[in-house]
Amino acid sequence: MSGNGNAAATAEENSPKMRVIRVGTRKSQLARIQTDSVVATLKASYPGLQFEIIAMSTTGDKILDTALSKIGEKSLFTKELEHALEKNEVDLVVHSLKDLPTVLPPGFTIGAICKRENPHDAVVFHPKFVGKTLETLPEKSVVGTSSLRRAAQLQRKFPHLEFRSIRGNLNTRLRKLDEQQEFSAIILATAGLQRMGWHNRVGQILHPEECMYAVGQGALGVEVRAKDQDILDLVGVLHDPETLLRCIAERAFLRHLEGGCSVPVAVHTAMKDGQLYLTGGVWSLDGSDSIQETMQATIHVPAQHEDGPEDDPQLVGITARNIPRGPQLAAQNLGISLANLLLSKGAKNILDVARQLNDAH
């Protein structure tokens, strides 16, 4: 009898209710805020589980004197976190989706994509230029951005401005803007500013005609071990179906173009009346040469937790077992079709030249 009692006690200790789920994140304040929001949602869904947040620095956090596009290494903000995932030191990792490459290392998958916040870019102005827009900034004003995508589009749109690289986390960039006289304004992701509670610093939100956004911008991705079915089931509740389908289309477009950090590629997606609209573009580094096109596809946005595919093969690095396969494939095909259209119009040449120029500098 006593033996059975011990077995029952052991089973209770090993039951999922007692389990601590370890969540990996970057150390920056924004990353911690984003991770806290994901953990809060998981806690609400699984009140019996405990969650421990483990923060670590990544290569991208450490190399702050070089433009991201020049470092010449993929997975700048993800490699150390993936290493911890691989060694079973954490069970899942919360990322900004735009930091996750469209091809993940073997053994990993994006197990959830959370509801997207505003994906557009924002302009934050130096205190002396508050009330201005990019259009009304004085001639030769210097605007800071760490992104080739932003610089290429904005140089084309605002030729009277000069664009220079600015690195560091959000706090560091804002301090550089406010305390030094080098920059009249800087460009940042609206979602990051909003998550930090800095709505009052948003001086201008850039519309798609001015600057399309990065693939996955404004959404959070939760990376897990691809074979860890328990954790895949656990994080599945975080999937937002519309965000998922938009981001599958965007990531398929980028992957098929073979774009990345070192080339200016941008997108804009919208879901309306059962249609998914995808606009994508590529630019030369100075913005003088560009190709942009829009395509659409009829896609039914499923309700969360309709029964999805059981075999769960990944699409552009994403596993969404609780979302039907048909809409996911339709979104992926839309991204591939748009990429093929741009490639047929000469996108590869623009991107190759951009890559060579970026590598040469």
Rank of each mutant, 00 (worst) to 15 (best):
D178S: 09
T319E: 04
G281K: 02
N200K: 14
G218W: 04
Q332E: 13
L161P: 01
H256Y: 05
F183L: 14
A40D: 11
L81N: 01
M295H: 03
I205F: 09
L245Y: 14
E73F: 06
I323V: 11
T145G: 06
G216M: 03
P324L: 10
S146G: 12
C114H: 05
L177W: 01
E223R: 02
L351C: 15
I53N: 07
H120I: 06
A354I: 00
L134W: 06
K87P: 01
D228S: 09
I350Q: 04
T58I: 08
R325S: 09
Q304C: 13
N200G: 09
L92V: 06
A297I: 00
V237D: 00
S45E: 10
L232F: 11
V124I: 11
I53A: 06
Q275R: 12
S45F: 06
L278S: 07
G346C: 15
D311S: 06
F158Q: 10
F163D: 04
Q194V: 14
V316A: 11
R321F: 14
A354E: 13
E258S: 07
K227H: 05
G346D: 03
E258I: 13
N340Q: 15
P105H: 10
V90Y: 06
G60T: 07
F125R: 03
V316Y: 02
L76K: 14
E89Q: 13
R321V: 03
V142C: 13
R156S: 13
P313H: 06
T78S: 08
P264L: 01
K128A: 12
L234P: 04
E310S: 05
G203P: 01
E179I: 15
A55N: 07
Q217L: 01
N171R: 08
L315W: 10
R150M: 06
A191T: 09
S146F: 10
G144H: 01
A320T: 12
R173T: 01
A339T: 13
L343A: 08
G192L: 02
E82K: 06
F163M: 11
F163S: 08
E306A: 15
S290P: 05
I54Q: 03
Q194F: 00
L134E: 03
Q332C: 03
D286A: 07
Q204M: 00
R149C: 03
Q229E: 13
E223M: 00
Q328W: 14
L177M: 12
L276I: 05
H305I: 14
L68N: 06
L245M: 14
M271H: 15
H207C: 11
G197C: 14
I323Y: 10
V267C: 14
P119W: 10
V94C: 14
H83C: 13
G203E: 05
D121A: 02
L42E: 03
A151Y: 09
E82A: 15
A55S: 12
F77S: 04
A354Y: 00
A252P: 01
S75Q: 09
A249T: 15
V237R: 10
I205D: 14
D289F: 13
K176Q: 14
Q153M: 07
T269R: 00
T136D: 12
D91V: 04
V263A: 15
R116E: 05
Y46T: 10
R325V: 03
K87A: 12
F129P: 00
P309W: 06
R355P: 14
Q229V: 06
V235P: 01
L329C: 00
A214R: 00
A151L: 12
L338T: 09
I54N: 07
F125V: 09
P313G: 10
F253E: 01
E139V: 08
M271C: 07
G259R: 06
I231K: 05
F108K: 02
N322G: 01
H126A: 11
E80P: 08
L245I: 12
R321C: 04
S75L: 10
R325T: 09
R201A: 03
G111T: 03
V130P: 12
P264V: 00
L338F: 02
Q328K: 13
L134Y: 00
K128M: 15
T109G: 00
S57Y: 11
V222L: 14
A112L: 08
V130I: 13
S284A: 15
L42G: 03
E209W: 01
A189V: 02
N333I: 15
I291A: 13
Q314L: 13
E162I: 11
T294Q: 00
H256A: 15
A191L: 01
L232E: 04
P313S: 14
T279I: 13
L206V: 07
L238F: 00
I323M: 05
L193Q: 06
V39K: 07
L206C: 10
R325E: 11
N169F: 06
D311Q: 11
I186V: 11
N349A: 15
R156D: 07
R116A: 08
R201I: 15
H268G: 02
I350M: 06
Q304S: 14
L104F: 10
S141A: 13
R255K: 06
G287I: 05
L234M: 07
V301R: 10
S45Q: 14
L154R: 04
S75V: 05
S57I: 03
V263E: 14
I248Y: 01
D65V: 09
V94M: 00
G221F: 03
C261P: 00
D65L: 04
H95I: 02
C261S: 02
A214P: 09
A112D: 02
A303Y: 06
V90S: 07
A44N: 13
L81Q: 02
H207Q: 13
I350T: 00
L245F: 06
